[in-house]
Design a protein around this nucleic acid. Structure first.
Lengths: 344, 344
DNA sequence: GCGAACCGAGAAAACGCTTTCTCAGCGGTG
DNA sequence: CACCGCTGAGAAAGCGTTTTCTCGGTTCGC
């Protein structure tokens, strides 16, 4: 009997009729506008409660010009790193009454820009993790995406904060660690060729090589998941390296699993390091030496920055750089020669 | 110069002016309504392209009464199981042009209903994973949430498909497996007390106990994460059990890590099983024996069911039941006594 | 050659809400 | 007692679309 015509749901008009006031007044009451007579206000509230009225968010959004929703574009929802960013973001945003719309580009770089645009139009702001997109493309779409926060990328576009993890430094720390353990032949099991964070790692390795001319660093092609690591066993063995820097923890885990199948002992015969310190890294056997990134915090921070943009606040910290922390566990150990020396 | 007044973005009106037609005609062209003169249509398209016009989804949603978005409520975004459901759902929905809005209830049961309602109002449909909500509460809100798909719960409300994993059967299979290995003292490291899926496991165990009166099954309190498992080491040891059924893989991993610290050999001294077969289960050491659930597929299926509801199609399969598949790996092995017997 | 059916496009209504505008009604003041 | 300012609530104008309604202009049939 209270059913409204079109949508079948109860609207502001129904409450207005029931309370014997105009719908404008209902709106005022619902939004805590205190210019309404207390007596009428309570009558409206009673009517709303009785009808279980809940304002339609779409109508509200149109009128207010905001959706109380933010979007996030990720390249792969199966990757624990992005899951953690999403979690941190979602949690922080929820505390301020915002919801999160997700868009997974499934590692297809051509989708990234389109998804970003679509998501942005439905939301009040966007967090973009688009490692495959070219710089030129990013530069082109960034202005239309504002308010925008970038993860692991930077742009010349003004007013776009960047949250970037210093992968270069992290990989250097890991390499230093392996060298200190006596490894002189390293191999880097790279990530996806056009990935931005892979580029940062490569740069870090260049710096490292310059500082350690006597250390041999082989570059191996790779990817970003378990399987990549697992399939890389042959290439890794061929390289003759005894210290392996895997693109990330997933790749490292895949590699360790493959090495195990071949009967190669980690860290006895070979040391393996990962990157990210995903929650599972400490539960592998041997526990994975890695570079820990405060990734959930990064998601939270992304929300802070985005919120500042949405509220048009002065943002004193337009972006930040995260230093990975070396997490030494048991997947890395003394190199064969060094170990023999110690034992002898 | 082309900037519109209020929102600052280009609207249909700008295109209309530029093309010298009414905004109704622009709308017709944009929606592929062929009652428009081809010459005019191309003029409109040119204007739209030049202005980079993109229809405002909020306005569209209001007019069309749909948002092309679905919502999902999960109890914990940190849990790989829900991450996998989300991924499968998101992927399947994306293929049909739908986006996913997420709502994390952070295991707070009182939030589940509220979040569900809020999310639903912004979307065309909802997938609900609300293990803590009481049956009564679920029954009460279900009608207002339609189109709705439930995960691991059922309801008497008509037209609400349920996708449920047969945890009862799974835990029975695991218990049988342990018994076959010679274990006669088992312990169940339970999940969150009010969790629906925990209840299903308990029921399964009752059935198991009835069939195996000679087997001793100790019930231990627990939770659903790493830490729970890690902290349960003492209780597990006290129970005297040699075969441990952990609530899920996360708990099993935490437990194994704790046992390892105590120098207890798995599976030599004790067998441990998990549940879910999360991607990391096969990379633990020893690799985890578990009950595999086709969880990504479950997310996909949730979308299928929801889509049928949204499109008001006849739905011949209102819900389905998933049988876990026993995945025997190396965390389970012969019981001490049995093993000795074998060796002797 | 005239009315009927038709076609294409503008005008206007609708979607559900917020907010400005407007105007009764009231109390206070000179 | 007339005027003014103020309060509180209804009317109406958006917000940006889609879609129905309407109507001038053709075209067709007889």
């Amino acid at each position: 009997m209270v059913r409204k015509s079109a949508t079948g749901r109860i609207g502001i008009a129904d409450v207005a009729v029931k309370a014997g006031v105009s719908h404008a007044t209902v709106s005022r009451v619902m939004n805590g506008n205190y210019t309404v007579d207390p007596e009428i206000a309570s009558r409206v509230r009673a009517a709303a409660a009785e009808l279980k009225y809940q304002p339609n968010p779409v109508g509200r959004s149109l009128a207010l010009g905001k959706t109380d929703t933010i979007g996030i574009v990720v390249p792969d929802l199966a990757n624990p790193t992005f899951q953690a960013i999403l979690r941190g973001l979602s949690r922080a945003a929820a505390q301020d009454g915002y919801r999160v719309l997700i868009a997974d580009s499934f590692e297809v770089s051509s989708e990234e820009a389109i998804l970003a645009g679509e998501a942005r139009r439905r939301c009040d702001g966007l967090v973009l993790c688009a490692p495959r997109m070219t710089d030129a493309e990013l530069e082109e779409i960034a202005p239309s995406l504002h308010p925008l926060v970038l993860i692991n990328r930077t742009t010349a576009t003004a007013g776009v904060p960047s949250l970037v993890v210093d992968y270069g430094q992290g990989v250097q720390d890991l390499a230093e660690h392996l060298v200190e353990l006596g490894h002189s032949r390293l191999a880097f099991l790279a990530g996806p060729p056009r990935s931005a964070s892979n580029g940062m790692r490569l740069q870090g390795l260049e710096t490292f090589k310059a500082a350690h001319p006597h250390v041999d660093v082989t570059m191996l092609e790779g990817g970003s998941d378990f399987d990549t690591g697992h399939e890389a066993v042959d290439a890794v063995l061929e390289s003759g390296a005894t210290g392996i820097l895997a693109f990330n923890d997933l790749v490292a885990m895949g590699l360790m699993s493959g090495l195990h199948e071949r009967g190669i002992d980690v860290p006895g015969d070979m040391s393996v390091t990962g990157f990210d310190d995903i929650p599972f890294a400490k539960y592998t056997t041997p526990a994975l030496t890695t570079a820990a990134v405060p990734i959930t915090e990064l998601g939270e921070q992304a929300w802070r920055q985005l919120r500042a943009l949405i509220r048009k606040e002065e943002n004193d910290a337009p972006g930040s750089r995260y230093q990975p922390r070396l997490e030494v566990r048991s997947s890395s150990g003394p190199a064969r020669a060094a170990r023999t020396a110690v034992h002898g």
